[in-house]
Structure formats: structure tokens, C-alpha cells
């Protein structure tokens, strides 16, 4: 899969930290952060999610000239309506080598992991897919690994 270039910016960290209700100066105030154990501004532990902003193929962002599935004049901008087999986020796990700092440029590389199935209580089955994002720094060193498990319900008629 394609690599995504993820420039880490201080303002983006501020916006993300505010959204999760943070007040910790280590995300907001350079001088206070330098005096802290972190030794400077860092990003919150789940910040790598925001790499989606830099993924040109990301489906969950409206794009000019492309019909969007959210509402406008009608409840969905796509005639077929909501996709029937949307995947849900079942699990998320981060493994940290070191904190992320503003000013660095990370590269996100995506790997597919395991795929497994379980019978659904509602009939049909649930398909679980593991997706692994590796974030590396400019020197190629691993910084964070983000492992997601996505689950898609498949009805018995579709399978």
C-alpha cells in the first residue's frame, strides 16, 4: 500500500489535544514543555490517527467534485444510501518506541495483518481484519506502530 507522508506540526497537535480535552502544557506550551520530563513539545498517544489528514485516498474526508455520502439536500449525497457493510473499529493498539515531536516528518506505511471470522449472533458472520500502520522517522527508525482490528458484518446471503 501507499506510503503517507505525515508532517507533524505544533498547531495540529494543539487542535488534536484540545479535541480530547487536554490541558497538559506538554502539548501546548513550548517553554513549559522544555522544562518538563518530556524535554519539549510532544503529541498525545493517539495523535497518529490524524495522519488520515495527509492520506490522499482517505475515504472519510469530503473531496471537491466527489459525491459525499453525508447529508445535503437529501439525507445522503449518494443515491444508493448508506453502505450496507461498513466496517466498525473493534480494537486499537499502539506500541511506542518514543514520543512524536512537532517539526518531524513521519512516514506511515500500512500492512495488512491477520484475517479471521466468527459466527455472528444475528446470523451470518463477522469478518475481522487486522491493519497495521508503522510510523517511521526521516532516518527510517520506527517511532510508533498502530494496530487496528476492523470488523465487517456479512449476512448469510452475501457470504
Amino acid at each position: 500500500m501507499t506510503k503517507v507522508r505525515f508532517p507533524v506540526e505544533a498547531t495540529h497537535i494543539v487542535m488534536f489535544a484540545r479535541a480530547i480535552g487536554e490541558t497538559n502544557p506538554v502539548y501546548f506550551e513550548a517553554e513549559a514543555a522544555e522544562r518538563s520530563e518530556a524535554g519539549g513539545l510532544i503529541a498525545p498517544p493517539t495523535f497518529t490517527e490524524a495522519a488520515a489528514q495527509f492520506d490522499p485516498d482517505y475515504r472519510l474526508r469530503p473531496k471537491p467534485g466527489v459525491k459525499w455520502f453525508g447529508s445535503g439536500a437529501t439525507p445522503s449525497g449518494i443515491e444508493s444510501g448508506p453502505p450496507s457493510a461498513t466496517s466498525l473499529h473493534a480494537e486499537q493498539e499502539y506500541t511506542y518506541v518514543r514520543p512524536i515531536r512537532p517539526g518531524e516528518v513521519l512516514t506511515r506505511q500500512t500492512k495488512d495483518g491477520a484475517v479471521w471470522e466468527k459466527a455472528s449472533r444475528r446470523g451470518g458472520k463477522l469478518v475481522f481484519r487486522e491493519r497495521i500502520h508503522e510510523f517511521r522517522d526521516e532516518g527510517g527508525a520506527l517511532v510508533v506502530t498502530a494496530r487496528a482490528v476492523l470488523v465487517t458484518p456479512v449476512s448469510s446471503s452475501e457470504s
Binding site: S36, A38, E91, E93, R98, P99
Partner: peptide
């Protein structure tokens, strides 16, 4: 745990 101290953080929704 403090800043820059996490090694792993995983959840199920």
C-alpha cells in the same frame, strides 16, 4: 503515568 512514558496502549471498543 506521566508524559513520554507509555510503551503500549491498547483498547477494545
Amino acid at each position: 503515568v506521566g508524559d513520554a512514558r507509555l510503551v503500549k496502549f491498547g483498547v477494545r471498543f
